[in-house]
Design a protein around this nucleic acid. Structure first.
Lengths: 199, 199
DNA sequence: GCTTATTTTCTAAGCGCTTGCTTATACTGA
DNA sequence: TCAGTATAAGCAAGCGCTTAGAAAATAAGC
């Protein structure tokens, strides 16, 4: 019997430092392009220092990925305002999600782009969380369409585009005039209104 | 004196096969996670077979990256219809660009995500081409805003979003109901109209 | 509160294997 | 005939990970 996914994110301070160093390294050089020695070097530790905390390089990636996905899901969950109008809800949702992607763009990059370096089981654990996030967005899109507040010919397509926009932030942020997460959040909340054809 | 970037894409048939095998490998495992032996194995060749064609793994990546960027730029250039209205132009542009990203999603993935495995010089060569593509989209957005056909509070932000949407296709395509490039092209041409606030 | 016992986390060393790439040499089609 | 393309063999360096044992943190006993 293996431990549950949520137990994988060790609460220890040293483990958190290792994850942070690994995020920077993975975001810069990719998972396959990063050596365990390089992660250790960033912390002035010996190459073996990681192993009491994570049994393998892949398990370290999984901890980062799982932590990132739960954090993003929490942000989206907490941003939702079920009693408000679909327009208000969607703006809050997209603004919060976009802001998280911008603020944590290095972590987001690892989380989004290194998924298929995970073992199949770990991949499945993480995909579940991704589906949860998409589902929240989708339900607000559908609520707006049902109330007539949005004009949405294709809920799946619009949701895909909304998610895609936010997820891609970590690839380009920061750029041009958009160097602050708040600026990206405001831009994307407005564009989301346009995408769903809100009044 | 080094050769010009465009000479790097060898016209030989064997070189093209090597690039194709490398695209699949890089798209699956990332640049750092792919070995030159693995690329050779996909072609049933010896590990040394690549070196008469490309002097290093990085040069192979550059050839793929440069070829992909010029192909995408050509597609966008040829899709533009300078005599038409901004709405027609933007739909043609985004439709063609999105379609290319979907059709060549493996190549696009390497092209978009492995940029910083390139040497600084090679990186600069490629970034020039990226700017050219963005500039074409931007000029159509501005033309529509100038003519009053579009309502665009922030041309930079909208252009950023349009490019981001298209570039991210290679991450998720195919998915759900969107398994054909044409379906993605049509969806995105319509969404582009919404993003620029077209009538 | 101080010592002792226990557990956890680290390092130094290194194992077996793989890496990108080179060399020397043979083959092949124009 | 001969440049271009392939191969077999292999080098120096680097890889993920393991081990043995030192050091440091934590818990227990008095």
């Amino acid at each position: 019997m293996s431990e549950s996914p949520s137990q994988v994110i060790s609460p220890s301070k040293a483990a958190a430092r290792i994850r942070a160093a690994a995020v920077d390294a993975f975001a810069t050089s990719g998972y396959g392009g990063t050596t365990t020695r390089e992660i250790a070097a960033r912390l002035d530790m010996s190459p073996a220092a990681m192993y009491p905390h994570y049994r393998s390089k892949e398990e370290l990636l999984f901890a980062i990925s799982y932590e990132g996905h739960t954090a993003a899901l929490d942000v989206v969950r907490n941003a939702d305002l079920p009693d408000e109008s679909p327009s208000t809800r969607l703006q809050a949702l997209i603004g919060a999600f976009a802001s998280w992607q911008a603020t944590h763009h290095a972590q987001a990059r690892v989380v989004q782009y290194e998924l298929n370096a995970l073992t199949p089981e770990h991949y499945r654990d993480v995909v579940k969380l991704r589906r949860d996030i998409t589902h929240i967005v989708r339900s607000v899109v559908d609520a707006g369409a049902a109330s007539g507040e949005f004009t949405v010919p294709d809920g799946e397509g619009v949701t895909l585009a909304l998610m895609s926009l936010c997820v891609d932030i970590c690839r380009w942020f920061p750029a041009g005039a958009y160097t602050e997460p708040k600026a990206v959040a405001d831009l994307y909340a407005g564009l989301a209104m346009r995408l769903v054809g809100a009044a």
